[in-house]
């Protein structure tokens, strides 16, 4: 893929990395397409979290919902490429009226994970999801986001009253026999410490989750988070010499792609960068990708993988 200037430069009018030539940027190969993401709810969300790296909100139409008919051709292409697992995110996936039908179609061919804010997990939804899980040979996982172990730490990030509503959603899942993975960002310094983890695990046990599972994620200094805590600085860029001796295999972009209503992107993080788009179909996106965005630096330095 020819790149005349870095992705981030394009958005910054020749800002931070000016003067650096594209050939200094390391490239990664797609080793295998194991993980296929769908931005199934676009950037539309019923919350507007202050750390959202793609600034999802009720009015953010940067990417739109994908209908079942939009998803099916990609699922078919994914079979030929031997995709191992499917992830659905947004925005809030359960705002998408086709979400359950999309899950039903997906679970016929592989395991699925939905990343949700937990607000739309009422009893009816949870029993339907449990029925979908029981009817498939493959695992169904629900990943619910929570950013603090009490309302005082969660709600300033995710919105007033969300702590109680998220926990209600988690309880409903547990009551239906679904064991969620709770995703916690490092928005509060203590979240990912041993003590922080213990508090989250205790909280989940107290709310009916017998086998609590956590997924910790660092923050990307993009979108709303850039506004909250500052954007990337010019030194936060990968260069060719940064390649570890064992290669870039720890980066998720060596084994994943992301589909939105507008085509195929390299990974879930760069969907709001037109330069992160690789093509219209999965077959268009099997080539190399230059690691020239500051978010690539975050993935490398923090060892981030969006998948569970």
């Amino acid at each position: 893929m020819a790149v005349s200037k870095t992705l981030h430069q394009a958005a910054r009018d020749g800002g931070a990395a000016a003067g650096e030539s594209a050939r200094d940027v390391p490239k990664v190969e797609l080793r295998a397409l194991d993980t296929l993401w769908f931005q199934v709810a676009g950037t539309v969300c019923n919350l507007a979290c202050s750390h959202c790296f793609i600034s999802c909100s009720p009015t953010n139409r940067t990417h739109e919902h994908m209908r079942l008919a939009d998803v099916l051709p990609y699922l078919e292409e994914a079979r030929r490429l031997g995709v191992k697992e499917y992830y659905f995110t947004g925005g809030e996936p359960f705002l998408n009226p086709d979400m359950e039908a999309i899950l039903e179609a997906t679970l016929k061919q592989g395991p699925a994970t939905v990343l949700t804010n937990g607000l739309l997990l009422d009893d009816g939804r949870c029993s339907r999801l449990a029925a979908l899980a029981a009817g498939s040979d493959y695992s169904l996982d629900l990943r619910v986001s929570l950013d603090g172990y009490d309302a005082a730490t969660n709600d300033p990030i995710r919105g007033e009253g969300t702590f109680e509503r998220i926990l209600q959603g988690i309880e409903n899942l547990a009551a239906a026999g679904l064991n969620p993975v709770v995703t916690v960002t490092e928005v509060h310094a203590g979240n990912a410490t041993a003590e922080g983890r213990r508090r989250f695990l205790d909280l989940l046990r107290a709310h009916g989750v017998a086998q609590p599972r956590l997924k910790m994620l660092p923050l990307f200094q993009l979108g709303a988070e850039a506004e909250r805590s500052g954007a990337y600085e010019s030194w936060q860029q990968l260069r060719r010499g940064d390649a570890p001796p064992e290669g870039w295999d720890h980066l998720q972009c060596t084994t994943c792609r992301m589909v939105t209503d507008q085509g195929v992107w390299v990974c879930p993080i760069l969907v709001n960068e037109p330069g992160g788009k690789m093509g219209q179909r999965l077959a268009d996106s099997l080539g190399d990708f230059p690691l020239d965005h500051p978010a690539c630096w975050t993935c490398h330095v923090y060892g981030v993988s969006c998948k569970t």
């Binding site: 958005a11 953010n60 139409r61 940067t62 960068e273």
Partner: peptide, 12 residues
């Protein structure tokens, strides 16, 4: 909640 009417997020 309403900041994005007619707008897209491009990076930050």
């Amino acid at each position: 909640l309403t900041a994005h009417r007619g707008l897209a997020t491009w990076g930050e």
